[in-house]
């Protein structure tokens, strides 16, 4: 602020000097700490800055996901044909999503894990829908850097990410490796016994 004021005073002085000579037009106001010219200078600068920001914003905002991308926000999928022990990968919003029909052994193994063993504590119940515990639906990108983990592998009977070595258990929870979070469960609901709406 003080720099602005200094510049404005120097500017005022030089203009006056060039045309009439400084002393002739210097008034009491121009020698006080702020004056009319300073106010106009700051006010113009402020309006200019707001205007520039208003112009720049759409230039940045165009980078955000467009309407056609956002339109894919919700899909329906029939999980009926997936046999026990089988997984499929479907696409939702351009992201791959795992739908796994878990075996009874996998479910009980996941439920038996004490929360204190977990890096990102979350119960198996919180990651599935009541009455549909056999269905595990998760975004298939490793929470580390987005690779797709390999199913039915790793040291915890779940998923293993080959990129940087993260191990997930049979509920898709991070157990070892650099990933910070469990595999993300997208918002979804069962519309009927087998029809799922994701998003």
């Amino acid at each position: 602020m003080s720099i602005l004021l200094m510049v404005s005073r120097a500017g005022a002085g030089s203009v006056i000097c060039a045309s009439y000579g400084e002393t002739d037009l210097s008034t009491q106001a121009e020698h006080s700490s702020t004056n009319r010219r300073d106010f106009l200078f700051v006010a113009t600068g402020a309006v200019g800055a707001v205007g520039a920001a208003a112009v720049v914003w759409p230039l940045i905002n165009q980078l955000n996901p467009d309407a056609s991308t956002l339109a894919l926000a919700s899909i329906q999928y029939d999980v009926g044909p997936i046999a026990e022990g089988q997984s499929v990968t479907i696409m939702w919003r351009g992201l791959p999503v795992f739908v796994r029909h878990r075996t009874a052994a996998e479910i009980s193994e996941a439920q038996a894990v004490p929360l204190s063993d977990l890096k990102d504590p979350e119960t198996d119940e919180a990651r599935t829908k009541p009455g549909h515990e056999q269905w595990l639906i998760m975004i298939a990108n490793c929470t580390h850097l987005g690779c797709i983990p390999v199913g039915e592998s790793g040291d915890f009977d779940g998923w293993f990410c080959p990129c940087h070595g993260s191990h997930y258990d049979s509920a898709g929870r991070i157990r070892r490796g650099p990933a910070p979070k469990n595999l993300v469960v997208p918002p979804y609901e069962f519309l009927s016994d087998t029809l799922v709406q994701i998003g």
Partner: peptide, 23 residues
């Protein structure tokens, strides 16, 4: 691009801004 998601709070929004989508 997932490196951006390491940034607390704003990470995911920045990633979407950079990619122009969710992936």
């Amino acid at each position: 691009s997932n490196i951006f998601t390491a940034i607390p709070v704003l990470g995911e929004s920045i990633k979407q801004l950079v990619l122009g989508g969710f992936a």
